[in-house]
């Protein structure tokens, strides 16, 4: 029993430390940078759903599906009703890298419905000291998060 508790505590500590380290790294080393959307490619979607049958779980998923169909499957399909739609939409942006003062382009994959049109602006997370390094998953459309004067 004690060994199991030590193992569980160890795993919990390791996971917390790993995730905490990643978050602290993101918080300390990256900052929001204004970026202009250059191009938004057509999205591909996948749908996944989990159903519990008392004690066992059945996971159903389908990938590379038309997004309009995917949105309907989570509303009407026997297996997918209540599931989640994941988008994969390549978005190309340009931004001014404050580290070296150069304008750069970056492509990230939006995993949720992306509604900003080319020419619109979003915020991405760029590294404070390494030129060209972008934390791709951390973009936002909330421009008020930009630090004053940035």
């Amino acid at each position: 029993m004690a060994v199991k508790l030590y193992a569980a505590a160890g795993i919990a500590l390791a996971m917390t430390g790993l995730i905490g380290g990643v978050e602290v790294n993101n918080l300390l080393n990256y900052r929001y940078t204004r970026a202009t959307v250059l191009d938004v490619s057509p999205p591909k979607c996948s749908v996944s759903n989990e159903k519990w049958y008392v004690v066992f779980r059945r996971k159903t998923s389908i990938s590379s599906i038309d997004c309009a169909t995917a949105e309907m499957l989570v509303g009407y399909d026997d297996d997918m009703k209540g599931g989640e739609v994941a988008y994969d939409q390549p978005v190309k942006v340009s931004y001014l890298d404050a580290v070296d003062g150069k304008t750069k382009e970056h492509v990230f994959h939006a995993r949720e419905r992306f509604v900003v049109q080319p020419g619109g602006q979003i915020l991405i997370r760029t590294h404070k000291s390494k030129p060209g390094v972008v934390n791709s998953g951390q973009w936002t459309e909330d421009l008020s998060r930009l630090a004053p004067g940035a």
């Binding site: 949105e71 509303g75 009407y76 909330d142």
Partner: peptide, 28 residues
């Protein structure tokens, strides 16, 4: 054969204050 009803929604996004559109299944 499955019948679906898709609704196109227009709303002001709290993320950026802009008008956004989304098409979702009516039943959701």
């Amino acid at each position: 054969l499955r019948l679906t009803r898709a609704v196109e929604l227009l709303y002001v996004s709290p993320a950026n204050g802009a008008v956004a559109r989304a098409t979702v299944a009516e039943s959701t």
